[in-house]
Every structure is written in C-alpha cells, then in structure tokens.
Simulated assay, not measured.
Amino acid sequence: MLRLADLDTAAIEALLAHYGLNLVRVADGEAIPGSYWGEDEAGIIGSTVYARGDTPVHSVLHEAGHLIVLPPERRAGVHTDATDSIAEEDAVCYLQIVLGGMLPGVGSERVMMDMDAWGYSFRLGSARAWFEHDAEDARAWLIDHKLLTRGGEPV
C-alpha cells in the first residue's frame, strides 16, 4: 500500500490547495484528528485533511474527495463524517481514482489496487472493474456538480 511517507507531499498539497483544502501532517504515533476509521486513516475537519506518514495515499484522496464534493459553506461544519448519500460516496470513490491519476508517483491504477487491498467492495469485484464498467452514475454526479468535465478531466 502506498503511504504518504513514500511521496513528496508537495504535489498532494498543491492538488488539495487547488480545491481550497489544506493537508496537515500529524506526528507519527499521534491520533489523527477527524479520522472516521481511526488508526492510520486520514481525517477531515473543516477544509483540512489530516494524515500521518503511514496514512495510505488512497485514504488521503478519499477524505479530500469528501470535502471537494461539498460546497465551501458545508465544509466548515464537517468533522469526521461528510457523506450525505450513497451517490455522493460513489462520486467520492470515483474522484479519488481520478485525483490519484494526477499525482506523480501515484496514478489511478495504484489507487485502485490499494482500494482493493484496503477492502473496498464493488459489485464487479474490484475498483478497476467498477471504475471502467459500472461507475457511470458516479461520473455523471461529478459532471452535474461541475467537478469533472464531460471528457472526464477534473475541474
């Protein structure tokens, strides 16, 4: 599993900043504020994503995705859990894969492999199969919310 410590975080910080988000590094061994899953999983509070060096990159991208899909006025009240619906959760999963593709040393394929290793479950058996063959509704949600272009590029 690709961890935050495996990367130069400048690219992730720049990507998050593009969406008005901040990445705060938590010291090794410290509890991660706003982590829904605990342990090494990323956390969210307001417009900030919290992570340690041992936090999986896909977790950082997933939690960032939760904040990206929210309008800024809703972000302010977020603490730990940001999901509003299944459609929104699906959109976040799709977005984390797209965002991974924008990061040097990461890539969409690696994000999907790590999602599978973490235990995400999709009807078609893998993140890749879902992304390529069963995620039209998630993609449409992101396009409708002006987070992806019709060509599939992030806004």
Rank of each mutant, 00 (worst) to 15 (best):
G29R: 01
L70S: 05
S47M: 08
D40P: 13
M112R: 12
T55F: 11
G105C: 14
G43C: 13
S126Q: 00
V78A: 12
M113L: 15
V106G: 01
H62E: 09
D6I: 05
E41I: 07
V69T: 15
I12A: 02
E89I: 05
P72T: 10
A27H: 14
S121K: 11
G53S: 02
A91I: 00
D54G: 13
A51T: 04
I68A: 01
W37R: 06
M112H: 09
M113P: 12
E73T: 04
A31Q: 10
G29H: 06
I44E: 01
L61W: 11
G107A: 02
A117K: 13
L70W: 11
L4N: 00
M112P: 00
A31T: 06
G119N: 06
E88I: 11
D28V: 05
V69A: 15
S85C: 12
V111R: 12
H58R: 15
L21K: 07
E109Y: 05
D40E: 15
L103T: 01
H62F: 11
M112T: 00
S85A: 08
A91V: 10
D8M: 09
E39T: 10
L7C: 10
Y94E: 02
P104C: 10
A91T: 04
G46N: 05
P104E: 03
S85K: 01
E63M: 05
A87C: 04
Y19Q: 04
A117G: 02
W37L: 13
I32R: 04
G107I: 03
C93I: 07
T80C: 03
D40R: 13
V69G: 14
G100E: 12
D54P: 12
I32P: 05
S85T: 04
Y36H: 04
L16S: 14
H62C: 03
D90V: 02
A10C: 08
E30C: 05
L15Y: 07
G46A: 03
G53K: 05
G34F: 00
A14E: 01
I86M: 11
I97R: 07
V92I: 09
A31R: 11
A10T: 14
I44P: 01
M102K: 15
V24W: 03
E109Q: 01
A82S: 08
E30P: 03
A51I: 10
L124I: 13
E73W: 14
G34A: 04
E39G: 02
A14T: 08
R123I: 12
A11Y: 00
I86P: 09
D40Y: 07
S121A: 04
G100K: 12
R75A: 03
V92G: 08
V106Y: 08
H79T: 07
E13A: 15
D6M: 08
M102A: 15
M112Q: 11
